[in-house]
């Protein structure tokens, strides 16, 4: 067991190395001259040369990659071209709102999506099943910012139940924090809920047709205990997998959601960096989120062993 965990943790190192190599080579893969693009249309030749030196494009690829990854291992993501501040410092300043939003969304999504999927599977074919699955199709089709604007318009502008925009740090109290984040979290969670509910329903349908479920019914167990204790535990592995994979959707969606609700997080930092063509910042954000994503999926792998002792180490 311990050996498996150690092996699994070690296995993430090559994945992270490939991510780093790929993100680094984007500068070389991108068509055209990145230095000229970043400098903009009004830039002089001297400006372009300065940016080229700054990005290290004037030196050989391998030398540059060696230096870059050596600093990356030490936790140095480079320096912002616009503000001159270290990228890690910029990310650290903006981390709290984004992490708050993502954790709250994850929590709400699992809280709603799993019971939805279980109920839909238990009542397969009924109107409630159809309704929930229609919701799932809608969840995949309505983009996150559309849901965001719709929620903000109805619940903040028209009904005035919640603040329209902004963010309050959790240090200033739980309720003010939650009040600002609840609409963004629902908007961001919409597609995620659809994804989890759909896979929960599909897996539960499969599990519910197994012999041991019939045995459980035969010995007189209640519906609730069959669904949530016997069946759900056996359906857990695919559900947890999808929750892990779906974190990529959360990361991409968070950038947009923050923009809709004016949350000063990493999404805001990304958009500012796009406008200013501040590539080191974008590169740092992409790397950090990719590493978080790899770690989430590592956690998912480790949870498997707790959920299903049959999984071979």
């Amino acid at each position: 067991m311990l050996a498996y965990i150690v092996r699994r943790i070690l296995a993430t190192i090559p994945v992270m190395a490939i991510v780093a190599l790929f993100v680094f080579s984007l500068l070389y893969i991108a068509p055209g001259d990145p230095a000229a693009v970043i400098a903009g249309d009004q830039a002089s030749q001297a400006d372009i040369e300065k940016i080229r030196t700054n990005l290290g494009l004037d030196r050989p690829f391998l030398v540059r990659f060696g230096e870059w990854s050596f600093r990356l291992v030490q936790g140095d993501l480079g320096t912002s071209m616009f503000t001159g501040l270290p990228v890690t410092e910029l990310i650290r300043q903006r981390l709290e709102p984004t992490l708050s939003l993502m954790v709250l969304t994850l929590f709400l999504a699992i809280l709603f999506a799993v019971p939805m999927g279980v109920i839909a599977a238990a009542k397969a074919g009924s109107w409630i099943d159809r309704l929930l699955m229609a919701f799932a199709v809608a969840g995949f089709s309505v983009p996150v910012f559309v849901v965001g604007y719709l929620l903000a318009y109805v619940f903040a502008l028209q009904l005035e139940w919640l603040p329209v925009q902004g963010y309050t740090p959790i240090a200033r109290g739980f309720w003010p924090w939650l009040e600002n984040l609840i609409l963004p979290a629902i908007a961001l969670g919409f597609i995620y809920i659809a994804l989890i509910a759909r896979i929960t329903r599909a897996t539960m349908l499969e599990v519910l047709s197994q012999d041991y479920v019939r045995t459980a019914r035969a010995k007189g167990l209640g519906q609730g205990s069959i669904l949530f204790l016997h069946a759900l535990k056996n359906a857990a592995v695919p559900i947890v997998t999808v929750i892990g994979i779906g974190v990529a959707l959360l990361i991409g969606g968070a950038v947009v959601t923050e923009s809709v609700f004016a949350i000063p997080g990493l999404g805001r930092l990304t958009i500012d960096a796009i406008v200013r063509r501040d590539y080191p910042v974008i590169q740092g954000i992409v790397l950090m989120f990719s590493f978080i994503y790899v770690l989430v999926n590592l956690a998912v792998d480790l949870i498997y062993t707790a959920l299903d002792p049959r999984i071979q180490y």
Binding site: I18, L26, V37, T270
Partner: peptide, 23 residues
């Protein structure tokens, strides 16, 4: 292994990074 690495980069962020480097 290369595909695993690529899949670890959230698609929207990968597209954002590429767009930041091209016209």
């Amino acid at each position: 292994r290369v595909m695993d690495g690529l899949m670890s980069i959230p698609p929207i962020l990968l597209a954002v990074a590429l767009m930041a480097l091209t016209r």
